[in-house]
């Protein structure tokens, strides 16, 4: 495991008690991997394969039952506050605060870091503009379309300045045209700004389009495939990877 890894999992197990007590349900079964700085990694798998559990462990929202999870060398669950400002999440739904304007929503992450109003406003303005929302700064979420709201939530994640972006199927609630556009913008912004991104998806096409690397999970979360994608690979190679993934997911 690389010492410089941004995110590392070492033989991680996660068990949940079943409702009613007694038995346990194993959601993650001995997962080991590491993610380097600047990588865009897709966690791909069918529904219920433990993608969200892995995601929540990286975010520090849940801890492992066994094994170790490290984000920038720290335990994200046990040292929750120590990673303040290091991680930002783009959720499946925009999760904008309805009582805040677009610019106030976009500045939320910096507000949590205790930054001043001027700095928050400048950063939020910059990222809203980068994401094509100039002129909508004062709009409340109810006045924005679904795509625009998701852009604000992406601006919120980028403006927070976090080195690690976690994305939980961020384009799945959007129509295909909007999702296509946003995927392209998101990928460019992550690369341009040297962020590390981990995104959950159940779409092979999305994983191939966005990722530098695809980790395919089998139920309960166990790594079935770990593929590094070469830049500019030809269609035949993409189809080959797609078929490999489909074969694993069909098992």
């Amino acid at each position: 495991m690389s010492a410089a890894a941004e995110i590392s999992f070492d033989n991680v197990v996660k068990d949940f008690p079943r409702p009613g007590g007694g038995e346990i349900f194993r959601a993650v079964d001995g997962v080991t991997f590491s993610i380097a700085r600047g990588d865009i990694v897709a966690l791909l798998g069918k529904t219920g394969c433990g993608k969200s559990t892995l995601f929540n462990m990286i975010a520090g929202l849940t801890g492992p039952s066994a094994g170790t999870v490290r984000v920038r060398g720290r335990d994200p669950f046990g040292e929750f506050d120590a990673l303040r400002g290091e991680i930002a999440i783009v959720f499946q739904n925009d999760r904008l605060l309805p009582w805040r304007s677009a610019i106030a929503n976009a500045g939320l992450g910096l507000e949590m870091l205790g930054r001043g109003a001027a700095e928050r406003k400048a950063a939020a303005q910059f990222w809203l503009t980068r994401l094509g929302l100039a002129g909508h700064e004062a709009d409340y979420p109810h006045a924005l379309s679904g795509g625009m709201r998701q852009r604000v939530s992406m601006a919120r994640a980028f403006a927070a300045g976090a080195g690690i972006l976690l994305c939980d199927e961020p384009f799945s609630a959007l129509d295909e045209m909007t999702a296509q556009t946003l995927r392209g913008e998101f990928s460019s912004l992550v690369r341009e700004n040297g962020r590390t991104a981990v995104f959950i998806t159940h779409s092979i096409s999305e994983a191939l389009e966005l990722g530098d690397r695809i980790i395919v999970l089998r139920r309960p979360a166990r790594i079935a495939l770990d593929i590094r994608l070469e830049r500019g690979m030809d269609r035949a190679r993409r189809d080959e990877i797609r078929e490999n993934i489909q074969a694993v997911l069909a098992e």
Partner: peptide, 15 residues
């Protein structure tokens, strides 16, 4: 869901 979103930024209790 909004509570979790704010929590993901690791705010203080006051924030």
């Amino acid at each position: 869901d909004l509570f979790e979103m704010v929590l993901s930024f690791r705010p203080t209790k006051t924030q």
